[in-house]
Amino acid sequence: MGFVQEFKEFAIKGNVVDLAVAVIIGGAFGKIVSSFVADVITPLILNPALKAAGAENVAKLTWNGVTYGNFLAAVIDFICIALVLFIMIKGINKIQKKAEVAPPGPTEDQKLLTEIRDLLKK
């Protein structure tokens, strides 16, 4: 089998395609959460807290020449993404538990063997 044929089979497998879709959706979802943090969380919650603390611009926060404001924004972004993913996975797991089917009952052979066993016990 040639290299091209092997690569084609590898690339078309469901797992590779599913992974590619997940990465693309994850990137888009990351942009949504980043916007949520930058445009909603920061102005509503973080900016008032920083104004009260005397540090009004997160990006300009420094300590001994180290600008840690952008890092702080990235940490808040990560926490929001992790929280949303946790809630989504918890919801998906809840749905999957409901979708689980009850185990099937005994087959005809198992029923017949059970009857024979019970008759032999008597």
Rank of each mutant, 00 (worst) to 15 (best):
M1A: 14
G2V: 05
V4N: 14
V4G: 11
V4M: 10
K8I: 06
K8N: 12
E9Q: 12
I12V: 09
K13N: 14
D18N: 11
D18P: 02
A22D: 10
I25H: 01
A28E: 10
I32F: 04
V33H: 02
S35L: 11
F36Y: 04
A38H: 03
A38C: 01
D39K: 12
D39G: 05
I41H: 00
I41Q: 00
P43C: 02
N47F: 04
P48K: 03
P48Y: 02
A49C: 01
L50I: 01
K51H: 09
K51T: 08
A55K: 07
E56D: 09
N57C: 09
N57G: 03
N57R: 08
V58T: 08
V58E: 03
A59C: 08
A59Y: 07
K60G: 14
L61G: 00
N64M: 15
G65W: 06
F71K: 10
L72P: 01
L72Y: 08
A73E: 08
A74H: 03
V75K: 03
D77C: 10
F78L: 15
C80W: 09
V84C: 02
F86V: 11
F86N: 09
M88R: 05
I89R: 13
G91L: 14
K94I: 07
K94Q: 07
K97N: 08
K97S: 09
K98R: 10
E100P: 05
V101A: 13
A102N: 04
P103C: 04
T107R: 00
T107H: 00
T107G: 00
E108I: 10
Q110L: 02
E115C: 12
I116S: 00
R117T: 14
D118I: 12
L120D: 10
